[in-house]
Amino acid sequence: MSALLEVRGLGKRFGGFVALNDIVLEVADGERLGLIGPNGSGKSTLVNCLCGTLRNESGQVRFAGKSLNGLSAHERSRLGLARSFQLPRPFGTMTLAENLRIPILYAVHARDGVRVADVPLRCADLLAMVGLADKADRLPRDLTQIEMRKLELARAMASEPRLLIADEAMAGLSHQEVDDILALLLQLNAQGITIIMIEHIMRAVLAFSQRLVVLVAGRKIADGAPQDVVRQPNVVEAYLGS
């Protein structure tokens, strides 16, 4: 398998605080990667650097053979890099269907020669995929927490990404709801989408990931098969203390 995402020596600091230090990471095309780490370990900062929301000071990010350095977030989304936000950020005055229209109009249609033939149908299909078909004309404020997460994923999928970064898509959900989202992510991966899952719920991470990466205090301390990684002494120490 060839690497879809390649991160080399990535570093990010906020003033004197080093948020990310020399991160090296490769994600293969079609892979399911789990990214874990204690709060404040730099997971979301890494997502923000990959997606262009934050600029990394050092290091290289390559996606599908192209360097992402200096590209803004919207240019990266057009290349096929999508994310869901940890706290859902829907477009509040738009209906659910209109929420999905934004990435279709601006990410998909911005690619050379690509046109979604029937935009309303595509929106309806995406909403059906996440089980929100009957709420297409509702506003995001009418949704429950899990529906909001599903909308967030549907909107990320509407941009037809090659890589989806799901930033804590399950936080705060019930056991059954976690399984719903998990099934959804596995289904997307089966369609060929590479997924990086950032999560605290170990049950979900272990069920999902083919490979597990652990960040602690801005450094990558482990990278390997999930069952091996969670037994590594330094990983156990980071989570439970020595």
Partner: peptide
């Protein structure tokens, strides 16, 4: 128009707009 949808996305959430391909 497409422009109007982009404007509305910026008004609602600029960060999310940018993440969804809108050149804000």
């Amino acid at each position: 128009s497409r422009l109007g949808y982009g404007f509305a996305a910026i008004r609602d959430d600029e960060l999310a707009a940018e993440a969804n391909g809108v050149p804000t």
